[in-house]
Amino acid sequence: MSAKIVARAAEKRFQTRQGWMTALHDFDLEVAEGEFLCLVGPSGCGKSTFLRILAGLDHATGGEVRITPGPDPKQPLANVVFQEYAVFPWKTVLANVAFGLEMRGLSRAAREATARRWVDKVALTRFVDYYPAQLSGGMKQRVSIARALANDPQVLLMDEPLGALDAQTRAVLQEELLQLWEESRKTVLYVTHSIDEAVFLGDRVVVMTAHPGTLKTVIEVDLPRPRDLGVMATPAFAALTGAVWEALRDEVRRAMAEQA
């Protein structure tokens, strides 16, 4: 398998009033085609910055960050499922899901047919003409996931997409997300601060160091797929989350000490 996402000595520096601040430093990463990669790290370690660079919302100030383009030049490179509920409140569920396709100039009939299929897949068929304000948080985030997947990007970028949800809704959506991913096996970069979530979803978990963010360690998750929430009760799962926490603990302490 070839590397879909490549980062070599990636560097991101911001100018602030206090001077230059390094968010990302000497960051190396390769994500294989079809891999589900989870990125964890203490807050402010630059994991979201890396995702934003991949999404084209920011640019690296040094090194190299790229997504290897696929054979179809029309297929978008990367779409994001954002942290908050970034679905447009002024568009219906259907129009939100069809948004990317509309921007690409697809005809109304074509984009609505695709959007309807994705609305069905995320179990929002009844709510297709609702506006986001009429939906719960979990439903809004399903719309956001469907909006990204309906656009059929080569890489799916997820920036703590379930962070704002309550624990139960979150568990349900994690499982639904895995089911959707099993169907397409897209390359996914998933940023989270939940260790359980990272181990449950990912093929590999990348732990980043506290500021400036760089790669600390990579943990292979060899749990069998397809997974369901039952896997969380297994000793293997506990061993993996323990290993991630082991790597993360010192970084979280350092980050907290720096912020204090």
Binding site: A55, G56, L57, P76, A78, N79, V80, F82, Q83, E84, A86, F88, F99, G100, M103, R104, R147, N151
Partner: peptide, 10 residues
């Protein structure tokens, strides 16, 4: 976030 979503979806 709405502006970024717009940009990200081209």
């Amino acid at each position: 976030v709405y502006l970024e979503a717009g940009r990200n979806f081209g």
